[in-house]
Computed example of a mutant assay.
Amino acid sequence: MRIGIVTPVVVRLPGAHSEWERGAGIEEIGRIAETADRLGYHHLTCSEHVAIPAPVAEERGGVYWDPLATFGYLAARTARIRLVTQVLVLGYHHPLAIAKRYGTLDRISGGRLVLGLGVGSLKEEFELLGAPFEDRGPRADEAIAALRASLSQRTPEFHGEYYDFSGFVVEPHAEQARVPLWIGGRTARSLRRATTHGDGWVPFGLPLDRLAEMLGGADLPDGFEVALSAGRALDPIGAPEAVERALLRVREAGATVTGVSLSADSAGHYCEQLDALRALGREAGAVFQGHDD
């Protein structure tokens, strides 16, 4: 199992972020990204929302940094750590727009992109952007297939019900021959979508025993990634035993990758927590890339 971090500051969910994040900006994010990169963590995350209705923001939060701009900056400050959109809402974009924009990100980052993709559920945001809502599920399935045919191609071609294109040049495009696609969701259908069209599954909002049950009943392809959350913010320095238990639980539930949030009172403290978490993670059998010991 590998460990990635749920990047602080870029998303602020009510009751789920530290107070220091309110006044933090790109320099603090960059410092944390550099530390995570040096320590060998697997990935950073950044989510996507364009505009949240004010009443909904009270529940879901209103702070969502744009992943493309954020990752473009962080790509220049890091060398190995992967950049994971968690998640892009497929219905907000034409597949070739994703192929061009995020293919460019893959190229400038040296092939470190992981596209986390989701169907989306916020009807008001779909309507604001002029995106169809009612048939978003089948549209998403086709968009994933179109992306698979397009991301690493100079002259992509795809013919479907919703998307149909050929004879266009997309340059630059992704450096990776196969950009990993992690599919988000919390239903059996999302897991089937992931195993059929993607390279990994990123579930949310489900207890670990239910996730283990779902995964146990699924036919997972070779190399398929299961990215599970480690739960509430961890405190590796103050509560190492609880951190070890949390890592063990997600690994036993079937995680090949886990995303962690960390408790901290400053960016500097967050970096100290990353160092402590690496030591605990290695004791628990987690793998880090290119240790700087």
Rank of each mutant, 00 (worst) to 15 (best):
Q273C: 03
F158Q: 00
L147I: 12
A267T: 10
R178F: 00
T196M: 07
S47G: 12
Y163T: 03
P203C: 00
L248W: 13
L129G: 00
V10Q: 10
G25L: 05
A99L: 10
R77S: 03
K123N: 04
A264H: 06
L211H: 10
R31F: 07
D222C: 00
A174G: 15
A79C: 07
I3G: 07
A145V: 12
V179R: 00
G268Y: 06
I5L: 15
G118I: 07
R38D: 04
I98M: 01
A36I: 04
R112Q: 12
L117G: 00
A24L: 11
E272M: 14
E213H: 11
R60K: 13
I5W: 13
G40A: 00
H269A: 14
T35V: 12
V6F: 05
D106P: 07
G216K: 07
D37I: 13
P14L: 12
G25M: 11
M1P: 14
E225P: 05
G167F: 01
E171Q: 14
G61W: 08
V56T: 11
G130F: 08
W65N: 06
K100N: 11
A177Y: 02
I98K: 00
R31A: 13
A177V: 03
E27G: 09
E252M: 11
E142C: 12
A255N: 07
D37W: 08
F204T: 12
L280Q: 12
T256Q: 06
F71T: 03
P240F: 01
R210M: 09
L39I: 05
A233H: 02
A230C: 00
E125G: 03
A143I: 01
R189Q: 15
G103W: 11
D164Q: 14
C46Q: 08
G61F: 06
E283K: 15
G111F: 13
A253P: 08
E157N: 10
L274P: 09
A212P: 08
D199R: 01
P95Y: 07
D265S: 08
G72M: 09
A233R: 04
D265W: 12
A97K: 14
A188C: 04
V170C: 06
R82V: 13
G198K: 06
E171N: 14
I5T: 09
V6K: 05
R245P: 03
D292C: 01
A255I: 15
G238I: 08
L191T: 01
Q176V: 01
E127T: 13
E34I: 07
